[in-house]
Simulated scan of single mutants.
Amino acid sequence: MAVIGLGLVGVVWVATGQSSRSTRFSVPEVDVAKAKALLDAGALAVDVRGQDPFDYRHLPGAMLIPLVALRTSIPLALSQAKERQIVVYCNDGHSSGPEATDILVRNGFKYVQNLKSGVEGWASAGLPLVKAANA
C-alpha cells in the first residue's frame, strides 16, 4: 500500500511540474524604449537569469535575482523596493521574466513590468550593457 501511495505522489508531482512550466503569465510588459525611460528615471532593473548570463552581460545597475531563488523567497533588498518602479528582464522576455514578474505582483509589488524583449532586445537596440572583462 505504501508503494502505491508513493507512486501517486510521484504522478501528482510530475503533473504539477509540467503544468507550471507551460503556464503563460499575463503580466504588465514594457518595450525597450519605455524600459529605458523608466530606468533613466530611477527604476530598478532586476535580472532573473543565472549568474553566468549576468556576468556575460547585463543592464547597467541591474540587481541579479535568479528566478530559481525568487520562487522561494523575495530577497530583503528587493522587498524594500516595493514602491519603486521595477523592470524585470530575462534573456528574451519570455523564458523567465513573465514568471518572475508574476511572483512580484502576487507579493504586492505595484510597479513591476517585464521587459518583453529581454536583454536580447535591449542589445539589439544598441543600448549599453555591462560585460565581464573576459567576455
Rank of each mutant, 00 (worst) to 15 (best):
A100I: 03
D55I: 00
N134A: 13
Y89N: 07
Y111P: 02
A35E: 01
V112N: 07
L104K: 08
D40Q: 13
L76V: 10
L127V: 04
A37K: 15
L59I: 14
D92Y: 01
V27A: 00
D55L: 15
V9K: 13
N114R: 01
A77E: 15
L64P: 10
G97T: 04
L104C: 13
A37Y: 02
A41Y: 06
L59P: 03
A133R: 14
L64G: 09
G121P: 03
A69L: 14
A132G: 12
S19G: 07
A33T: 12
A35F: 05
Q85G: 07
K131G: 05
D102R: 14
R71V: 13
T16P: 04
L129W: 01
R49P: 06
P98N: 00
A132E: 09
A77M: 09
V119S: 11
V46L: 14
L8T: 05
D92G: 09
N91D: 03
G93K: 01
V12K: 09
A43S: 06
A2L: 13
C90A: 03
P53L: 11
P66F: 09
T101V: 06
R49Y: 02
G121E: 01
A125Y: 03
V88T: 01
A133F: 10
D102E: 13
F25N: 02
S26M: 08
A100W: 05
K36F: 06
V87W: 02
V112T: 11
S26Q: 14
R24T: 05
S95V: 05
V88M: 10
A125P: 12
V119K: 01
A62Y: 04
I65R: 07
P66R: 01
M63D: 06
L59S: 00
A133L: 14
G7D: 06
R21G: 09
A69Q: 15
H94Q: 10
I65N: 14
V46M: 10
A100T: 07
V105D: 01
S96V: 12
W13C: 11
G108L: 05
L39K: 00
Q51L: 10
V12P: 10
R84V: 09
L39Y: 03
L8S: 05
S22Y: 11
D55N: 14
L104G: 07
V11S: 13
N107P: 13
A123V: 08
V27R: 02
Y89S: 01
V3M: 13
A41L: 11
A100L: 08
E99G: 11
Q113A: 15
S26N: 15
A69H: 13
D31W: 02
P75A: 04
N107C: 10
S22P: 00
F109H: 08
E83A: 12
L64T: 10
N91S: 05
R24M: 01
D40R: 03
N114W: 00
V14T: 09
E120F: 04
A81M: 11
S117D: 04
A2E: 12
H58G: 02
T101D: 05
I86G: 03
S124H: 08
Y111C: 00
E99F: 07
